[in-house]
Write a protein that binds this DNA or RNA. Sequence first.
DNA 1: AGCACGCCGACT
DNA 2: GTCGGCGTGCTC
Length: 717
Amino acid sequence: MSSENGTEGGGAEGASPEQLALIRESVRQAKTPRAKPRTWRGAKLAERLPVARVLVDKGVLHLDRYFDYAVPEELDADAQPGVRVRVRFGAGRHRVRDGRREGGGLIDGFLVERVAESDYSGPLAALAQVVSPERVLSEELLGLARAVADRYAGGLADVLQLAVPPRSARAEQRPSPEPLPPPSKPEAGSWGRYERGAGFLDALASGGAPRAVWNALPGPAWSEELARAVVATLASGRGALVVLPDGRAVARVDAALTSLMGEGRHAVLTADAGPEKRYREWLAVRRGSVRAVVGTRAAMFAPVQDLGLVALWDDGDDSHSEQHAPQPHAREVLLLRAAQDKCGFLLGSWSCTVEAAQLVESGWARPLVAAREQVRGAAPLVRTVGDGDLARDEAARAARLPTLAWQAVREGLRTGPVLVQVPRRGYVPRMACANCRAPARCRHCSGPLEAQGSGADLKCGWCGRDEGAWHCPECGGFRLRAQVVGARRTAEELGRAFPAVPVRTSGREHVLDTVPGTPALVVSTPGAEPVAEGGYAAALLLDGWAMLGRPDLRAGEDALRRWIAAASLVRPQGAGGTVVVVAEPTLRPVQALVRWDPVGHAVRELGERAELGFPPVSRMAAVSGPGEAVAEFLRTAELPRDAEVLGPVPVAVTAVGRPRRVGGPPPGEQWDRALIRVPPGSGAALAAALKAAQAARMARGATEVAVRVRIDPPDIG
DNA sequence: AGCACGCCGACT
DNA sequence: GTCGGCGTGCTC
């Protein structure tokens, strides 16, 4: 008997679907409204568990519902829970005409469960096809996908699209390699530098499930430390998963794992591997051939068997936010996984997000930190140059760069490479008073003024109004300077000032992985900094104004994270490592950098967020769309009693020619956005209410204009 | 989204 | 009696 049977319409189609259709036909003609045929006379169905519950992959229309289908006898063997299937789905009765079935197209789905009876009071259609007998959707993965869908008020089918890669028949046909026996428990290595580091590894190796927020010491040891945690988990006979922000970080942990335990015990899941290779690796994990996974954010769903540890590096990096609906964040997905699988959890970073601090504050995770003298021994010396220094510094105004910075660069270049961190290009140049450096703001809405093209035209980044005659409200000055452009030019000038030294650049389109330990100027945008052999001798951080000037809740935390990430590549103070940050020394993130205290900074931020009712202490959702649609949505949604609606207010029109933000309005269209806030503990109720309201809208039909619902919106003023 | 069902008015 | 317009609701 062939499972290929019935793949095409026409005469080749198996007999039972035809018969089923005929039965439906006769049921209808007998005018029996909704017969309840529990038995199928004539149709050859599977003897045991003849009903398949199927998750139909058709958008958000019928969120999270299963549909029951009859299992024809010839598909019985292959139609196991977790396989991909194709079914007829569509309105109305499937007529039989000229021997062909009509109505309802073939669509994809997952077979979730086999049961004895359906509780659907109507005639069941048959499964059209089992796409392949590979059981891709395990019970655990389904449970995780459902939890993620609930957390983010999204559809189960949407989450499964993120969690299960597209099929490649060739990849499926290849047998996965034989699993290797577990490695032996690794030495603690540089984990010994942390107060509870060795204990954490011991707990993993002995089958425990420790949960930690790890503030990593600056320097390159983090990737090997992550790898040791993975090997310790494997040694206990369980699997491990590490999610990293980009391909370079994946390559480092990959290399560390290979050097600790050789090839064949871990898989690498990244987007740039190509669909077939990626699916092949994914299958090796799903089949249990490989028990450890490192990868970028899509790997957060990797179906590792018997999971003992989930780990995430640098959760503040925004590449951990999924771009596709419902836009889950890797940290939140791994939190759900740790809770569901009762496994270990490790959240590591040189810096510390407010969310990470909250995990410690709530007692859910324990801090994994080094003693103060370890930090002092590993971190570089940090010095600041603020507005006051600049004003007093005659040479700086002429040369556009403070004397202190010149000195640090000159000194550093004597012994090694010097890193210059400049703002990312594509940051719209924001303007400040050339005299007093106060940010130039719109006189109507206080939004940031931005330069338009090459000319002197100014436009507000929020309300879009033109500003023709700006003058500084602080000092009366009327000259402006573009901070971002200034930083780039400064980097160029540095290159000219040290003509004997090579200049390398690393940025968006051309990212360097490493640079040699010889004297060089390395100009890089945040996140693209190459690792220097032996560490940088010095770093110059020039983008303080651009980062801290953003009207964003995370501006301070983000600036600190990027500074710390760059400064972590610099040699320790004892080896002469120096960092100069051009930013106001009274600002809290700047002070946290000088004291090298990212955890303290995050804890203070967390306290303020709690007071102000901001995330992550409260949970927020954003509802956006055309004004009338948003208003209607808010009228009909049955929000939790303790929910508070802020707005709606008009969102800034996306300026024509600027890249459209994911989930934002089309250029030129006016949208409204409301924020909905609930106190701690009501997040699940809020998500459920928003999901129900969305589903109700969809059911009402196509006349309704879509609104976008986003849990944990990233940009709240 | 499709697509069939059904209620109601117009025409043979 | 029967055809067909479009509004409503379902899809196993």
